[in-house]
Design a protein around this nucleic acid. Sequence first.
RNA 1: GGUGGAAUGGCCGAGUGGUCAAUGGCAACAGACUGUAAAUCUGUCGACGGGAGUCUACCAUGGUUCAAAUCCAUGUUCCACCA
Length: 315
Amino acid sequence: MTRQPVVALIGATAVGKTALSLSIAEKLNAEIISVDSRQIYRYMDVGTDKVSLSVRREIPHHMIDIIDPDEKFSVADFAEKTSQTVKRIYARKKIPLFVGGTPFYYNALFHASLNSELPSDEDVREKYEALANSQGAELLHMKLAEVDPPTAERLHKNDLRRVTRALEIWDLTGKAPSQIFEEGEKRDYGFDVLYIGLSRSREELFSRIEIRLEQEFSQGFPEEVEWLLKNGWNENFNPLKGLGYRELIDYHRKKITLDEALEGAISRTKAFCRRQQTWFKKFSPAIWFEMSELNNEQEIINTIKNHLNLNEVNK
RNA sequence: GGUGGAAUGGCCGAGUGGUCAAUGGCAACAGACUGUAAAUCUGUCGACGGGAGUCUACCAUGGUUCAAAUCCAUGUUCCACCA
């Protein structure tokens, strides 16, 4: 199978992916595919730092504004839909440029990390969640240890999310997840990625996070959340548990002040930034560029062209 | 000037004679991750050491005691109330 060479711009939140991606997309006549688990949702614009509509008219962006905050959407949905999008972009004789900070999604799309067949059922999941609520997380973990010792061993008993999901899979298939993962076929989309990693010092990243959130808070983020609440969305829907959204919901409920909300959003975003870096460290092949060094854009573009075999054409 | 209260590890804060290198939270750092992933979860967190352990620590100094973050005295700083 010949693999399709593609390029993805990765890096922690606030490193400067977006600005650079626009410039690169313009020069390469590329279309951007957002790899961002929150920009997927409509009506969440300020807090997710979406590119403006007017810019998106100039440079097409995909995987943004595709569903409402209460709709179900999984990594598998993302990977599936995205791979279709890539085909359409190529059909148009343009280049896809992946940009975003959701490592989990990259993992599914480029590293064949997902099983082809893996069922999911809301009701079954809720059954186990309810069990955990009434009987405690430990009991659930013990139950998992009975049906799938390796997975129970791997998962901490407090990690209810994963323990529940493992039991859900077992319940629906009658097989141990560990066995399915080992033997089952993986979803491979046939890409050959090169990661262009953008880096900055922690210190710099943290200060950029602060600045960005302060701006968002003064430029409509609180109002955006107020609007979402008025229209029936709340923290029961996962996307509204995101950075800043959760805090601003508390603010609108008068549980905390606006300053406290900002502070909370900042510190949670910093923690997220660290988590992203933990993932990205392991992404390969990757070439890292230090963003505080100016004028490495041409070098990045050359690297991209090289991977996509666009270089020799003009020479 | 008087009276009362408080000073704890980077920060907040619990602890009132031994089981205290000191609960908890925050921050910081490291990590896990198969359809919720901006979610969810874990570990480290006084210094030195692989560890057993050793040392230095609860404002300062002195004291009581076999033993003090905890009790006493004095001092320093801060807060509240009264003048």
